[in-house]
């Protein structure tokens, strides 16, 4: 945004703020459009099984959902993967689960 448009925006906000002290806001009109940044260069840590996790754990959300968790135990990571499958419908083949759990426990957890 240019400096000028910032100033104009500032004036618009100041005007509407004083206007709204007097009268109630009315419903919005028109289309609001945004463009979300996506995963902004985030990635799972490298390591054995990373490819499988990349393939199975990025369709519904960013890897940040994993990397921001506290240090979970193997049992807790197993419960997370099971929940993704059973509750949220992640189409993860059963035979990939041990690889995924081992990867998560090694990279983001503790035994």
């Amino acid at each position: 945004m240019t400096k000028q448009s910032l100033i104009v925006l500032g004036i618009v906000i100041a005007l509407s703020a004083s206007a709204f002290a007097a009268t109630k806001a009315t419903p919005p009109k028109g289309t609001a459009t945004i463009s979300l940044p996506g995963d902004a260069g985030m990635a799972f840590k490298p390591g054995p099984g990373a490819g499988v996790v990349q393939g199975q754990c990025l369709s519904c959300h960013s890897s940040a959902y994993v990397s921001t968790q506290p240090v979970l135990t193997k049992a807790q990571w197993t419960a997370e993967v099971t929940k993704m499958k059973a509750v949220y419908g992640a189409p993860i083949p059963d035979d990939q689960v041990p690889t995924i759990v081992d990867y998560l426990t090694t990279q983001y957890g503790k035994p």
């Binding site: 945004i34 463009s35 979300l36 995963d39 959300h61």
Partner: peptide, 25 residues
């Protein structure tokens, strides 16, 4: 808290905020 590192990013119509997950926002 542990694993508390977070980027600060300005999403559309937002000033820089603390990103927990970008997708979903």
């Amino acid at each position: 808290f542990a694993n508390g590192d977070r980027p600060l990013v300005a999403f559309p119509q937002k000033r820089p905020l603390i990103v927990l997950t970008p997708r979903p926002p």
